[in-house]
Design a protein around this nucleic acid. Structure first.
Length: 92
DNA sequence: CTTGAGCGG
C-alpha cells in the first residue's frame, strides 16, 4: 500500500468518511455494516440543517485504526443498498 | 412527494 493519510483522533475514535449513501440509510444500518469490519465506537449520519434531509454521507468512528483501515479497504467501492459505497479517511 | 457533489445537525 502506498502512503495514505492516517489521522489519529484522541478521545477514542478514528474518523472515517462514508459517502454516496442512499437517502434512506440510517445510522444503525451503517453501524452494523461498519461493525462487520471493525469495532465501531460511533456512527454519525450527516443531515442538512435547512431541510432536515440526509446529505447522503456520514462519518464513522472506529476504536482501532486497523478497523477503520479495514473498513476503507473492504467497504470503499462496494455496493450498499443499491449504491456504491464510498469510504475514506476523514479530513476534519 | 422531490436530490446526488462531497468532509459533520
Amino acid at each position: 500500500m502506498a502512503t495514505m493519510q492516517q489521522q489519529q483522533q484522541p478521545s477514542s475514535g478514528f474518523s472515517v468518511y462514508v459517502g454516496n449513501l442512499p437517502y434512506s440509510t440510517q445510522s444503525d444500518d451503517l453501524g452494523q455494516l461498519m461493525s462487520s469490519v471493525g469495532q465501531v465506537t460511533n456512527v454519525r449520519l450527516v443531515y442538512d440543517r435547512q431541510t432536515n434531509r440526509p446529505k447522503g454521507f456520514a462519518f464513522c468512528e472506529f476504536a482501532d485504526q486497523s478497523g477503520a483501515q479495514n473498513a476503507v479497504n473492504n467497504l470503499n467501492g462496494t455496493d450498499f443498498n443499491g449504491r456504491v459505497l464510498r469510504v475514506n479517511w476523514a479530513n476534519k
